[in-house]
């Protein structure tokens, strides 16, 4: 059966859109629950005498944590789908199952880490614990749901476009695992900078790296009174979150688009011509190389702009 090329590209663009939302919510969830690298400051804060009302989650690094939630969700969804459930039912139920595990880990992580700070007189604020579970769960649900939707579409993209031969060879849970790790790695690399360098040390001067002497002395009293994670995520949602979403969206766009462009130009589509397989790969590689070189040039431009505009460091 011939592939409907327009439908194929439409599904690909939907995946890109879901990827943008997934990674944005992943970063915001890691800000809501204070996971990953900036959380090292929340842990350090109590040890340097800065009693705080932050949620100290840090189940693990974001990549394996999201791999866990997404894989659990993917497996539940896969089992339900294989028993004949409709995707509109199976995927959200899978995401809820992933989030139940997420919330359990959040509670145990926060209670465990904060109770370990007992000798520094850091209390466990129960209202902080209860009040953050729903934001954590809802942000995480959005991220996980989008990831398993991406996994579902990719593992069925051929079927949805006309020929099951184009379906991705990996099973849905494996795709969910792959993208779970990737969103975690991206969220940790990009959005965490906005939380760690900017929001966590909001009362330090803008325009400098946070010196070692500042470490642990996080901003605890701010515009909304004593700061909690709820005051963090609203700030990071204005910059860090969307940037992170844009990163994953761009990556998915470049990955899928260059493969599909290779398929179209080489003649692999719409009949899945086996002889055009190697040329498809070659075109995809060349397009990817060109995009990579443009990215390197982009980085040179940004670094040079920053050097020229900001100039050498002024002050002590």
């Amino acid at each position: 059966m011939p592939i409907e090329i327009a439908t194929l590209f439409a599904w690909m663009l939907l995946i890109v859109f879901l990827a943008l939302i997934a990674c944005m919510f992943e970063d915001l969830e890691s800000d809501t629950g204070s996971q990953s690298n900036p959380n090292s400051q929340v842990q350090l804060a109590a040890q340097v005498g800065q009693i705080n009302r932050f949620f100290n989650k840090a189940i693990s690094g974001e990549a394996p944590a999201y791999a866990m939630y997404c894989t659990i969700a993917g497996v539940i969804a896969f089992v339900l789908l294989s028993k004949g459930a409709h995707p509109l039912l199976a995927l959200p139920i899978g995401a809820v199952a992933g989030e139940v595990v997420h919330v359990i880990f959040s509670v145990t992580a926060h209670l465990g880490r904060t109770s370990a700070m007992k000798r520094f007189e850091q209390p466990i604020y129960l209202d902080v614990l209860y009040g953050h579970l729903i934001p954590i769960a809802t942000h995480g649900f959005m991220a996980v749901l989008c990831i398993i939707c991406i996994a579902y579409i990719q593992s069925n993209i051929g079927t949805l476009s006309g020929n099951p031969g184009l379906d991705h060879p990996f099973a849905l849970p494996m795709l969910a695992f792959i993208w779970g790790i990737t969103v975690g790695a991206i969220g940790s690399s990009t959005g965490d900078i906005h939380y760690g360098t900017e929001r966590e040390f909001q009362d330090r001067p803008f325009g400098e790296g946070k010196r070692v002497v500042y470490h642990g002395k996080i901003t605890r009293y701010a515009d909304c009174g004593i700061r909690t994670q709820k005051d963090i995520v609203s700030f990071c949602a204005k910059y860090g979150g969307p940037c992170t979403g844009m990163t994953f969206g761009m990556i998915i766009l470049f990955e899928n688009w260059r493969t599909l462009v290779g398929m179209k130009v080489s003649g692999y589509l719409p009949e899945l011509q086996a002889t055009a397989g190697d040329m498809t790969a070659i075109i995809g590689i060349v397009v990817g190389l060109v995009i990579g070189i443009v990215l390197i040039a982009g980085n040179v431009v940004i670094v040079n702009w920053a050097r020229k505009r900001y100039g050498p460091f002024v002050g002590e």
């Binding site: 790695a185 900078i193 910059y239 940037c243 995009i291 990215l295 050097r307």
Partner: peptide
């Protein structure tokens, strides 16, 4: 590509979100 995009956007956040020169 994944590394390229991630590092580029990380730099954007450093430069515009934190105001530092890479």
């Amino acid at each position: 590509l994944m590394m390229g995009v991630t590092m580029l956007v990380a730099n954007v956040v450093y430069v515009f979100g934190a105001g530092v020169v890479p």
